[in-house]
């Protein structure tokens, strides 16, 4: 299973990189979104994967027994919400760039500062 997961993460990274290298700004935004999925999964697997061991303290015991690592999960949880914020921000930027420069080609956005 781990090998399948590793390949899945690799494919997500590859797709993200490919989209980031496009010139159309919408594809670049999608690349950012895929990249954050890939990173989240990477961190998720870093804690070791476990089935049926949610990180909850059960019943009478006071510690986690045979459960998934809670620390990466806490990191990813905020990362998921923040990647939503980033997605919204990049979408808004793409919209504004298109509106005010009339192009969605990132190569044409090189010199907007110099104007």
């Amino acid at each position: 299973m781990q090998i399948v997961l590793a390949i899945t993460i690799g494919v997500l990274y590859a797709a993200a990189v490919y989209l980031l290298l496009r010139r159309g700004v919408v594809r670049v935004v999608m690349g950012v979104s895929l990249l954050s999925q890939a990173v989240n999964l990477l961190i998720f697997t870093a804690g070791g994967i476990k089935e049926g061991g949610s990180p909850f303290v059960a019943g009478a015991s006071t510690s986690l027994a045979n459960a998934a690592d809670p620390l990466p999960q806490a990191l990813i949880l905020t990362a998921i919400v923040i990647s939503f914020g980033v997605l919204a921000f990049t979408l808004a930027m793409a919209y504004r760039a298109d509106k005010s420069t009339g192009t969605d080609d990132v190569d044409d956005l090189r010199s907007t500062d110099a104007q």
């Binding site: 993460i9 494919v11 590859a14 990189v17």
Partner: peptide, 12 residues
């Protein structure tokens, strides 16, 4: 991109 994907697979 494929190369980078392979590298990341190896990292995982």
């Amino acid at each position: 991109a494929a190369g980078f994907g392979v590298v990341m697979t190896l990292v995982v």
